[in-house]
Structures are given as C-alpha cells and as structure tokens.
Design a protein around this nucleic acid. Structure first.
Lengths: 202, 202
DNA sequence: GCTAAGTCGTACAACGCTGTTCAGGTTATA
DNA sequence: TATAACCTGAACAGCGTTGTACGACTTAGC
C-alpha cells in the first residue's frame, strides 16, 4: 500500500518544501512561532499549510527532521579522524552555528513531540560527537575524570553560549569558533597536563 | 502623596509575598506559566492577584526582583577574596542551583520587561562575578587571552548545563558542583599552565 | 484544452489567556 | 464590635491561536 500515492504534483511538493524550510527558520528564531507566521514566511496561505500538515506537531516534526538531515550532511563532510584535538576544532569550526539553530528548534520540539520521537531524531548526530570524545579519552588526549555525557554537554553549552553572546552584541561571529575551541580544549585537558596554546598544535 | 498608603493590612502583605514566591517558583520551572497557575500555586484567587499586580509584567518584575534579592543575600555570605581558584569554587558550590533558577525566570523577564529594566536588575550580581574573574586574571590565576565577558558567560553556561543534566537524569545533584568546578577551572587555566587537580589546591 | 489537484481568502467554532466588574463573604484592626 | 480592607467565585469582553469548511480561482499534467 502507498505505492501509488507518489502522484503528488510538483506544485504541492514545492509548497511542502517551502513550509518545512520556513518552519525551521521561524522556529529556530522563536520556538513559539505561530502557524500563520510560518505560512506567511513560506509565501503560502495558512489553509494550504493545513492541506499538507494535519497538526502543528507535524510541522514541527518536519522542521526538526529537515534540520537534522542538514546537520548530518554537514557532519559528513567533516574529518573527525586523526588528532582528537584537531578533529574537535574542525567540528566546532563547521558546526557551532548549526548546532545553535537546532537548539531553539529542539525547544519547540520538546513541547510538541513525544520524548521518544525526539530521542529518535537526535540520536544520530549525538552519537558521532560522543564517539569523538570517547576516542579522545581512550587516546589520552582528553580527561577521563568526568563522564562522557557531561563533556558532550559542556561542548554544546559553550557553543550555545557563543551564539547568545553574538545575539547580545558582545561577540563577533568570526571570533566565535576560536573562543569556543580555546575554551573547550582547555576544559577537556587531563588534570596535571598543560592547557594547549590556542592555534598551537599539529 | 503616597505617605499614607503605608496602611496595608498584614493579610494583604502576606498575599503579595505568597504571589511573588509562587511566581518565582512557577516561572522558574516554566517561563510561560499563566497567572491562573501562579495564583493557584500561591493559594490565592486569580482576582486577588490582580488586586495587587496590575499586569503580568508587574508579577514577573516582582518575581525577578525577589530572586535577585535572594541571590544577593546568598552572595553576601560567600567569601570571594583570597585564592581566586578557591573563591570561584566557593561561588559555584553555593550558587549554581540559584543561578539556574534565575535563568528560566530571566527568559520570562526578557519577553515581559524592557531591556533596560532587565539590565538594571541583573547588573548587581553580575558585577561581583565579573570582578572575581578580573581579579583572577590580574593575579595570573586565570587566562587573559579571552575576554572577561566571555569567561563569565562560560561559567554560567556550564552551570546551566549541569542543571539540564540533572533534569535529564544523567547527573545527580550532589556531584554537580564538583563537575562544574573541575570544568570551569580547567577552562580558565592560562595556556601552557597545567590544569589543577580536582580537589587539590589549598 | 480539459480536468483534477492545488491554492486562495474568508469565515467559523473552540480553546486558553488576560484584564475587568460585581456582589457577597471573611478578617484584620482600631 | 463596628467598619473598612481584603478575599472570593462567577461572569464578561477582547485577543490570538488552532483546526475546519466553503466557494472560487489558478495551474500542472495528460
């Protein structure tokens, strides 16, 4: 069943895409954005939105899925092998603003979607970062006196913190990655070992 | 004018206090808590709430002021002099959960109050922490290759992160302060210098 | 060019929240 | 104990949101 339902008009597919994209943008800015706002941002009537998505939850789910996919695409282009310090620096450089947009979206999702669905969506990208941290610990590059989950959380917390600073006008976008990297690499350094010099390495 | 209005019944003062306290609690849990919810939590009728506060904004302001006052009281009991590392550890130990409750409250305030009013309320406590960080830098205990504002932000971000982890059930409350301290002290260590051993010091 | 799929604006009902009014009951305070 | 201050529930208007229904228009696809 469902093999013939592929008969969607190109017109409709374009609308669905526009809505999902607008939803990701609007909810990324404000987790409480209304469906009217999203429809308007998509250049589509509010009724049209309801023609494709039965409820608000479905719209949020679509936006979330879209953002996760985008994130996975970006993550795929990053080399997370080799020296864990450099790998982490590459991850931060490429992903900090992407991770930030996902946060507000996540806030919307947490009110609209089931906890299981959220875990299901979030699991993929999270696993890769966890693996990187775990490898860094195993190779002696990162400290092991704190849980992996805690370290991953710190990493993301500092990324979000940078986004907040930018929104507040206290930090410029081009310096964000350097600040985050310097901070996190120091936080991850094993006790007793010297903190790496920023920009120094290789 | 207004000199005779001191004639408030003890009854009324108790209600106002109960409402402010309930508001701080409810908004601390959920920034979108309705006034009905707050009134119910205060054990007071919704109309009574409007008898004392003209608008939602006034309730939020009262809750925020209350939380700030409480924070200042706690901060006053903490010795922020001496070794900056130990002072920072003392600050974290005493204030991390207090700072966390203030966050959700701040989120409510940012939607209801003017930016100026928020700065006015927030300035006091923020200044003390900034001073501590600045002193630590001047004495060579903390790194100086990152802005003070950024370091303060990192400190708070990691505190909030701990609160999130507790809510998610991945961290127990009694270990939070140790994790935060170990992480932040490492993040603040000047490049090239060894990160302090957790619990080591004095 | 015909037809069905898609879109549009308007309008509707239902809901929850805010803020106000009113009439009647309770309690502090002098 | 008298009285004014206080508290209360119920009820109302106004607003924005969600979700649905309708009739008319436009467009994709054969």
């Amino acid at each position: 069943m469902g093999s013939k339902s592929t008969t969607k008009r190109a017109d409709a597919l374009r609308s669905i895409e526009a809505i999902a994209q607008a939803a990701a943008e609007c909810l990324g800015r404000n987790p409480e954005a209304s469906l009217s706002e999203i429809a308007r941002a998509a250049g589509v009537g509010r009724v049209t939105l309801y023609a494709h998505f039965a409820s608000r939850a479905e719209v949020v789910d679509a936006a979330m899925s879209r953002a996760i996919d985008r994130g996975n695409e970006v993550l795929d282009t990053i080399d997370l092998t080799g020296d864990p310090l450099l790998a982490l620096a590459r991850y931060i450089e490429a992903g900090w603003h992407l991770v930030d947009q996902a946060r507000a979206l996540l806030a919307a999702a947490q009110r609209e979607l089931s906890a299981g669905r959220i875990r299901e969506l979030h699991a993929g990208p999270a696993a890769r970062v966890e693996a990187l941290v775990a490898r860094g610990r195993a190779e002696g590059a990162f400290r092991t006196d704190l849980p992996v989950a805690w370290m991953v959380n710190v990493l993301h917390a500092v990324m979000h913190s940078a986004a907040d600073e930018i929104r507040a006008g206290r930090l410029t976008s081009d310096r964000a990655a350097d600040h985050i990297t310097a901070t996190v690499l120091a936080a991850f350094t094993p006790p007793g070992r010297p903190v790496p010099e920023p920009g120094g390495g290789a």
